[in-house]
Amino acid sequence: MRMQKLSGSAFAAFLLTLPSFGFAQAILTISTPEQSASFTLEELLEMPQTTVVTKNDYVDHPAAFQGPLLRAILETFEIDRHADLNMIALNDFNSTVPAADAFDYDVILAVLRDGEGMTVRNKGPIWVIYPMDEHPELRDDAYNNRLVWQLKEISVE
């Protein structure tokens, strides 16, 4: 058998011709002192979904955001309403969010905006969304700082 060397660009071109195996990649990690779990987009979409139609300081018009309730995820991990959640974005921006917000309001981990997945460029794949149009008290800078986009991790300590 005769072997030939492939240049880097030829090898890259070859790899692009291979079929995609669709391996699901974890996009969210939730960790507490007792446990940690990671979720793929598919797993987040399989959870019961809530739609919040709202606008905020970062969108020009009301949009329909869809995703699992943050409260449901916190309950799964037995995270108390008195806990603080460290929300960490892909760019390492972080915001401390009281878990009570999730129990007092329908805060969602939005994975769809107007029925479409959100790219990193468009604040995805996960954007923490508050129902601001339903609760005028949420239209405040304190809550705007909790609208973490490109969310990658929720850490509870």
Rank of each mutant, 00 (worst) to 15 (best):
L45H: 12
E46A: 11
E42P: 02
T51V: 15
L74N: 03
A63Q: 12
E78R: 14
I73H: 03
G67D: 09
L70D: 04
L41Y: 12
I79Q: 01
V59G: 04
E43D: 09
L70T: 07
E46V: 00
V53D: 07
I79G: 01
L69M: 11
E46D: 14
Q49M: 08
H61A: 12
T76V: 11
D80S: 14
V52Y: 02
V52M: 01
E78W: 01
L74T: 01
P48L: 02
T50W: 03
Q49G: 03
L41K: 10
R81V: 06
F65Q: 02
P48G: 06
P68K: 07
R71Y: 08
Q66N: 13
D80E: 15
T54D: 08
A72L: 09
T76L: 13
K55Y: 11
Y58S: 13
V59K: 08
E75V: 06
P68T: 09
T51Q: 13
E43C: 03
R81M: 07
T51L: 04
D57N: 15
T51F: 05
T51K: 09
T50L: 11
E46Q: 13
V53W: 01
P62C: 08
T50V: 12
L74I: 04
M47D: 02
R71D: 07
P62M: 05
K55M: 11
N56I: 00
R81H: 06
L74S: 05
L41V: 02
T54I: 08
P48N: 03
E42V: 13
E78P: 00
M47Y: 07
V52S: 00
P48D: 04
L70N: 05
E75T: 09
Q49I: 01
I79M: 02
T76R: 15
L70E: 02
F65G: 02
Q66T: 13
E78I: 05
D57M: 13
L41N: 06
T54N: 08
N56S: 11
N56M: 03
T76I: 10
Q49Y: 02
T76Y: 15
N56T: 11
V59P: 01
L41F: 12
L44C: 08
D60M: 12
A72N: 15
L41M: 15
